[in-house]
């Protein structure tokens, strides 16, 4: 009944693993995908590759074969005046090898679409939902691409740089009560669940 208290040898040597990965894996990937993968120089420890969305699946399958068994994070960035405007950023970790790699996938504003990776790494499923929710980047073949942090009937994608900090309502020119900074005013007769939505009679929404 006594608890077995284990102190295993922890994985160490992340920095050396990074060096090894830069020597071995990155040249291989650059050779295999010469047109769609480009190395981005960085002075920091995690190597980063720019991957075109068309090649993402193929690169991801190759990474999975090479032992990247954890998809630590999927996030989005909006570089507004630049084209392509968005970027989806993936952080991969190989355990126990301790390799780390960052993939940055540029996404056009006109067709914000990236293939999903959630069949390869289940952790991607909800992280991709968050990117869709906050940036409006679609993930092709995702099984359940719905809003995750915001209500289902929310209009707009708040982490886009052209989304005002105080919400869509801040843009409306109207009586002060309508431009309330923090809460959409609730009025009798409002349908349920319209919090934060511009009212139809103000010409908002899309």
């Amino acid at each position: 009944m006594s608890p077995k208290e284990l102190y295993a040898r922890p994985y160490t040597g992340g920095a050396e693993a990074q060096e090894e990965m830069r020597r071995t894996l990155i040249p291989e990937l650059l050779r295999e995908f010469p047109d769609s993968v480009r190395e981005l120089e960085t002075p920091f420890d995690i190597a980063q590759l720019e991957v075109q969305p068309e090649a993402l699946r193929a690169v991801a399958v190759r990474l999975k074969e090479r032992g990247f068994n954890v998809l630590m994070d999927v996030g989005g960035v909006d570089y507004l005046p630049r084209t392509p405007r968005f970027e989806v950023v993936y952080h991969f970790v190989a355990i126990p090898g301790l390799w780390r790699l960052r993939l940055r996938v540029p996404v056009e504003e006109s067709a914000p679409e990236v293939p999903t990776l959630c069949d390869l790494w289940p952790s991607a499923e909800h992280a991709e939902r968050e990117v869709w929710d906050l940036f409006g980047i679609r993930f092709t073949d995702h099984p359940n691409l719905t809003r995750i942090l915001l209500p289902d009937n929310w209009v707009g994608h708040p982490l886009r740089k052209d989304y005002p900090l105080q919400g869509e309502r801040a843009k409306h020119m109207g009586p002060f009560s309508v431009r309330n900074r923090y809460h959409a005013p609730k009025r009798p007769g409002d349908p349920p669940g319209t919090c934060g939505l511009p009212r139809a009679d103000l010409g908002g929404g899309d």
């Binding site: 295993a8 040898r9 994985y11 068994n69 954890v70 998809l71 994070d73 355990i95 790494w121 952790s123």
Partner: peptide
């Protein structure tokens, strides 16, 4: 690991990360 679990929850499963 596939679900991105880290920290004490992962170490309880025997991964010394």
């Amino acid at each position: 690991l596939a679900l991105g679990v880290t920290g004490p929850n992962l170490r309880a499963s025997g991964v010394p990360y």
